[in-house]
Amino acid sequence: MADAEFVEFNAPHTPHPNAIEAFNVVLHTIKSEIVKSRHHWDKHEPKMWSRAQGLTDHQLTNFTVENDLVEVRSGPTSYGTIILGKIRIPAVNDELGEGFVHVRIHDPPNKGDQDVVFHSLFTDEGNRDADGHPTTWRAIQTKDTPLEFFNE
């Protein structure tokens, strides 16, 4: 399994057509996983998706890859390419500014975009107290949150 030490990612950049195609392959899954994550966290720690408070699931996932995938990074592995994407959530624009989710997908070699798979959403459990317990939670990132490798 890859981690940040073994994958060298390119610099953050606006998406090229191949990234747009790859994210469109898994768009339905991304939206489904956002809703599933939100419902899960709302049961355990509602602060995680607090920036979406008051939004319906449809409002939260009302984005398109063409308009809202604003930044990507990719890195090769022996088993394909890991692609990170920053997707704007148009319905979120609060005191922290616009809201974004960070998504990790994987494109195995040799089959074009036919076998692209969703891996995960970045849910930041942020700062920790002296006992190691999280003190902040954030699934919806700010524009300034760097797009970096994550394992969630």
Rank of each mutant, 00 (worst) to 15 (best):
residue 130 A to F: 12
residue 131 D to E: 11
residue 123 T to R: 07
residue 65 V to M: 14
residue 37 S to K: 04
residue 77 T to N: 05
residue 109 P to R: 03
residue 77 T to E: 04
residue 110 N to Q: 01
residue 51 R to M: 01
residue 21 E to R: 05
residue 98 E to D: 12
residue 81 T to I: 04
residue 143 K to D: 13
residue 29 T to S: 09
residue 51 R to P: 02
residue 55 L to P: 07
residue 45 E to L: 12
residue 6 F to S: 15
residue 91 A to G: 03
residue 71 E to P: 05
residue 68 D to I: 01
residue 4 A to H: 10
residue 129 D to H: 09
residue 124 D to F: 11
residue 76 P to N: 14
residue 88 R to T: 12
residue 9 F to D: 01
residue 49 W to R: 04
residue 44 H to F: 10
residue 85 G to K: 09
residue 5 E to G: 11
residue 139 A to E: 00
residue 37 S to I: 01
residue 62 N to G: 12
residue 109 P to Q: 00
residue 14 T to W: 05
residue 54 G to C: 09
residue 45 E to R: 15
residue 124 D to S: 07
residue 31 K to A: 06
residue 1 M to L: 14
residue 10 N to T: 03
residue 35 V to G: 08
residue 84 L to P: 00
residue 4 A to L: 13
residue 124 D to T: 05
residue 42 D to G: 03
residue 96 L to G: 08
residue 124 D to E: 07
residue 135 T to K: 10
residue 141 Q to I: 06
residue 84 L to S: 07
residue 136 T to A: 10
residue 129 D to I: 02
residue 87 I to Y: 01
residue 32 S to V: 11
residue 16 H to T: 13
residue 134 P to L: 08
residue 21 E to F: 06
residue 78 S to D: 14
residue 129 D to A: 05
residue 118 F to T: 12
residue 101 V to F: 08
residue 37 S to G: 11
residue 6 F to H: 15
residue 137 W to C: 08
residue 116 V to Y: 04
residue 20 I to S: 14
residue 47 K to L: 13
residue 26 V to C: 02
residue 42 D to Y: 05
residue 140 I to E: 09
residue 41 W to N: 07
residue 54 G to D: 04
residue 106 H to G: 01
residue 123 T to A: 11
residue 42 D to T: 09
residue 49 W to S: 13
residue 103 V to P: 10
residue 94 D to W: 04
residue 61 T to I: 13
residue 107 D to F: 06
residue 12 P to W: 00
residue 64 T to S: 06
residue 106 H to S: 00
residue 17 P to V: 07
residue 134 P to S: 08
residue 121 L to D: 00
residue 149 F to G: 02
residue 47 K to I: 15
residue 121 L to I: 02
residue 36 K to C: 10
residue 68 D to E: 00
residue 63 F to W: 00
